[in-house]
Design a protein around this nucleic acid. Structure first.
Length: 503
RNA sequence: GGCCCGUUGGUGAAGUGGCUUAACACACCGCCCUUUCACGGCGGCAUUCAGGGGUUCGAAUCCCCUACGGGUCACCA
């Protein structure tokens, strides 16, 4: 059992491509077969080396590996079609010699005109077969005139062509829909149809799992396999992925490639796991799993026939799950480039202490964010002075009469501490609250705002410990200064007091 | 326009003739937990399976038609 995923390097790895690749990998694992990665780069104009690199990098980042492919090689290489061009020529020559293919000199304009006409008449555009019966003399004449021909496959099918799709069931195509299609372009490179079929045959592919957009191409491929004297493999066409408005997912909908989601701070585990939930229903209610785990029970008949809408809300939820459950080191590894970019950490840590402190800070913040980008944001106040205090927080927590004094008092009490940990900070802080005779919230909330600038975040004492004694006290005093500086003049804002006030 | 595929809630979906007064998850709305946020827990959210006809004792599940959505008709893959 052999399957292949065959992207063309004309762009980054698309989110739909990822899922198709995943299904191939799953299917191969399930049946102890081999998964092949093949690069279909016969389009000289649009194929780019950088895109190939980007696709390979995406797979490696996702932790997905194929059994054979351009990087690891294999017995059926090379795995880039651009390196197999001679092969296709040989096959074409053979087809021509056998009378199964012929050169066509029709101009693009003529063909286009004919196509338009047929379309207008409500018919399926088909090639008229003009060049089919050209004599050798006429060939020579055209060649001499410098016309570079394309080659077409001679199609004489009269019976309906039936495809037994493993996902869709029986699909019938009528012979009047088929025509002599182009298999070799005038520049000597094969069309997708030719190259793909030759390689699938040569690479002994047994099952083709690909996107639904290829369903209509399948009859052509079956015809080619037959012309080659090979039995066609089995086909399975997976449904497409749509955007929220039910149209085809495109750039205007935001991120559509693996790379783009990576830049937005999504984790490979989440991207892969979520992709698997689209158009596929695991046998049980579990939603979190590694793809290799799902492979154990993977069945094509559980793949949906209808397209699915990509729901980034659910992706976020999935990502948040992995943010808080993956090993801390894993999160750190993925967060690192983001932290460096933000300037919070160096490429190389100056000390182990600094590294472990960063790890602890990440651990405190990660369970309340959904993406790595949000993680970086949630870490900001540990690495940067406070830019501003949350506005709503100021109204709510900085406007009460004695806050500044309370903050100073708490700062002073904390200064006495020699051991700066969770227990001691909380003990002293609670004592201050008691001494002041106020409610816990009346001091906790202003302090949180003072040292983080925010009203939300990890537990207050966690923040204190992770921020360090000096910085904590400094920020409390600064906040007290700030409050006093901003409370002069008209300061009769009556604030809705939800915390029971002092006695 | 021809051909092909599809249609269960805002979204992903379970469901393959009676066990369904349609699972589960995301989102949303309440409540609880909590110094905040998040996590977690509990509850609410489709009188109905695009619409209409049939078949059947019985249909979301089988058949037909209509509507809608998508794919494809390239010297792109």
């Amino acid at each position: 059992m052999r399957v292949r995923f065959a992207p063309s390097p004309t762009g980054e790895l698309h989110i739909g491509g990822l899922r198709t690749a995943l299904f191939n990998l799953l299917f191969a694992r399930r049946h102890c077969g081999r998964a092949i990665l093949r690069i279909d780069d016969t389009d000289r104009e649009r194929s780019r080396e950088e895109h190939l690199m980007s696709i390979l990098e995406s797979f490696s980042w996702l932790g997905l590996t194929f059994d054979e492919g351009p990087v690891q090689g294999g017995p059926y290489g090379p795995y880039r079609q651009s390196e197999r061009l001679a092969l296709y020529r040989d096959v074409l020559d053979k087809l021509v010699a056998e009378g199964k293919a012929y050169p066509c000199y029709c101009s693009a304009e003529t063909l286009e005109a004919s196509r338009k006409e047929q379309l207008k008449a409500g018919k399926t555009p088909r090639y008229a077969g003009t060049c089919r019966h050209l004599t050798p003399e006429e060939h020579a004449e055209k060649d001499k005139a410098g016309i570079r021909p394309v080659y077409r496959l001679k199609v004489d099918r009269e019976e309906p062509l039936v495809v037994h799709d493993l996902i869709r069931g029986k699909v019938v195509f009528q012979p009047d829909q088929l025509d002599d299609f182009v298999i070799m372009k005038s520049d000597g490179t094969p069309t997708y149809h030719l190259a793909s079929v030759i390689d699938d045959a040569l690479m002994k592919i047994t099952h083709i799992l690909r996107a639904e957009e290829h369903l209509s191409n399948t009859p052509r491929h079956v015809l080619l396999f037959e012309a080659l004297g090979t039995t066609p493999p089995q086909f399975a066409h997976v449904p497409m992925i749509l955007a929220k408005d039910r149209s085809k997912l495109s750039k205007r909908h935001g991120a559509t490639s693996v790379e783009a989601f990576r830049d937005l701070g999504y984790l490979p585990e989440a991207l892969v796991n979520y992709s698997l939930l689209l158009g596929y229903a695991p046998p049980d209610d579990r939603e979190h799993f590694h793809w290799e785990e799902l492979a154990k029970t993977f069945e094509l008949d559980r793949v949906a026939k209808h397209p699915a809408v990509y729901d980034t809300d659910k992706l976020r939820w999935m990502n948040a799950y992995y943010m808080r459950t993956l090993p801390l080191e894993r999160i750190f590894e993925e967060a690192r480039p983001f932290l460096i970019k933000a300037g919070y950490v160096d490429r190389t840590f100056t000390s182990d202490d600094e590294r472990s402190l960063t790890l602890r800070r990440i651990d405190a913040v990660r369970e309340r964010v959904s993406t790595l980008l949000e993680l970086v944001d949630g870490l900001a106040y540990f690495y940067r002075p406070i830019q501003s205090y949350d506005e709503k927080g100021v109204r709510k927590h900085f406007s009460k009469p004695d806050v500044a004094a309370h903050l100073r008092r708490a700062a002073r009490d904390l200064t006495a501490l020699t051991v700066w940990d969770l227990d001691s900070t909380e003990r002293v802080f609670r004592q201050t609250i008691e001494d002041l005779g106020i409610s816990g919230g009346a001091l906790i909330h202003p302090t949180r705002l003072a040292i983080s600038g925010r009203t939300v975040g990890p537990g207050l004492f966690d923040i204190m410990v992770l921020l360090g004694k000096d910085e904590t006290i400094k920020r409390m005093v600064e906040a007290a200064d700030w409050i006093e500086a901003h409370s002069s003049g008209e300061r009769h804002i009556s604030v809705e007091d939800d915390a029971p006030s002092s006695s």
